[in-house]
Amino acid sequence: MGASGVSDEYSPPRLSRWLHSVPHINVTLHRVNDTFAPDSPVYLESLGIIGSIPGAWLILTLTVLLIYLLTRCCDRKQRPPRSITALKITLMILSVLCCAAIGVGLFGNDDLHNAMLQSIQAGNQLAALVNTVKNQSSILEEAMGSRARAPLARLADALDAPVANQTALGTLLRALSALRNNASAAASAADNLRRPLAELNLDAFMKRLWVWEAARWVGGMAGWCCGGAVCVALLAAAARRSRRALLLLCVGALGALVACWVAAALLAAGAVAAADAILV
């Protein structure tokens, strides 16, 4: 009764398949090839269009905000202090929700950092394996090439001496010829294995990737923390009814909104590109 074996075939995550299924279109709204091709202008154009969707939503949000501000500027009617109570409560609720969203963002940034560290560790192991293959193939090529010539030459010279048993001599000569052919084939195979890996320097790439990831993690944590500080300060200003603080922090929140949507556009295009690369 045979045991059921576990398949080692790689299965892409469901999220990658979903992102890969996002339609890739050009500026004429025609669907283009979704195969990962970073050197193709058409493919890069489709990624730019995907990244422009959060930008379009940002423009729509800013347009609505501008219309609201224009109505407020044109409103000269004096209002009692309690007339903004509902607006203040709404602002406080939205500030609390933004703080919760920023907490989720901090968790996601740290989770992504841990995943990137695991990927970098696996990449370092792959780089060490590639270096081992390059070293072993070089040793094998040298052993089967230059080092094997002198012993084989001495053996050929020894077989050139007069021998009474010609049958045994013929067998030895055929074995020597086969040994030379095998040594040449092994040296050629080792050279074919080493040559494609000679220009592959994964160590430098993994070091640069680690620097980029460290900078991304620090920048992400700093950005999320600054956004959380703005939300907390906005909540305090709304509670204290500080008009100047509210204006200043609203401008800061507007800048944070623009930065978040720009980051969302970059992440959307990058996520789709990563999914396309996985499913190549």
Rank of each mutant, 00 (worst) to 15 (best):
A100R: 05
G123Q: 10
A158S: 14
A161G: 04
A127H: 01
C99H: 00
R149S: 10
A161Q: 12
N165V: 09
A143C: 02
L117D: 13
A86V: 09
P162E: 10
V133F: 06
A101S: 13
L106D: 02
N114C: 00
P162F: 04
A127R: 01
G108Y: 05
G103I: 15
I120T: 08
A115F: 01
A156F: 03
L106W: 01
L94F: 10
H113F: 03
A156L: 03
A128S: 15
N135I: 07
G103T: 15
L97R: 01
E142W: 03
N109M: 06
C98S: 13
R147P: 01
N114D: 05
G145P: 01
A128L: 12
G105F: 05
S119Q: 14
I139N: 14
D160L: 11
F107P: 00
D111W: 06
V163E: 08
S137F: 07
K134H: 04
A153L: 06
V163D: 08
H113L: 02
S95R: 02
T132I: 00
L106K: 02
Q121P: 00
L117R: 14
D157C: 04
D110F: 08
G145E: 02
C99I: 15
M144V: 06
S146N: 08
F107W: 09
N109I: 14
C99Y: 09
I89V: 15
R149K: 07
Q125F: 04
L117E: 12
N165E: 15
N131E: 11
I120F: 00
L87K: 08
P162R: 11
T167F: 08
T85Y: 12
D157Q: 13
V96K: 05
A122W: 02
P162N: 11
C99R: 03
N165W: 09
G123A: 09
Q121G: 03
M116A: 14
G123T: 04
F107V: 13
I93A: 12
L106G: 14
I93G: 03
Q125S: 15
A156W: 00
